[in-house]
């Protein structure tokens, strides 16, 4: 098996261009895949659904991995967003609550 040790012989710093290359490829791939797509109303609706769903999925995944502190911070951010319509103040409120929680309810 002449090639078995080949990858191991590569210098470790090649991790940097490898990681950068893979991440750039994922950034570039979406529009390349869609280059031939016709943006029919159906495809446009699908992309609309994808747009909000990918963000929701990130939030849901983060909350599933986290505890009550993060859940309460997110609930407060959502409430502040509903009442003030300000993304900035929603974010600040969530961060302040999480900081307070860490300070007063450590562990």
């Amino acid at each position: 098996m002449p090639d078995a040790s080949f990858p191991s012989s590569l210098p470790i710093w090649l991790i940097v261009p490898l990681v950068a290359g893979i991440v750039f490829a994922t950034r570039a791939l979406g529009p390349v895949l869609m280059a031939k797509a016709a943006f029919s109303p159906r495809v446009t609706r699908f992309l609309d659904g994808l747009a909000i769903s990918v963000i929701v999925a990130m939030v849901a995944t983060a909350l599933a991995k986290a505890g009550p502190r993060e859940a309460v911070a997110v609930a407060l951010a959502a409430t502040v967003m509903l009442t003030t319509r300000s993304v900035f103040w929603a974010m600040i409120a969530g961060v302040a609550l999480a900081a307070g929680w860490s300070h007063f309810l450590p562990g």
Binding site: I52, I55, V56, M58, V59, A62, L63, R69, E70, A73, V74, A77, A78, V80, M81, L82, R85, V87, A90, M91, A93, G94, V95, A96, L97, A98, A99, G100, W101, S102, H103
Partner: peptide, 23 residues
């Protein structure tokens, strides 16, 4: 970073954007 609440910045930012979009 969690001592300052910074760890929840992005999840709160995304939540606010989702709430705004959903509304």
């Amino acid at each position: 970073v969690s001592a300052y609440g910074f760890d929840v910045v992005m999840v709160c930012f995304f939540t606010a954007l989702v709430v705004g979009e959903a509304g």
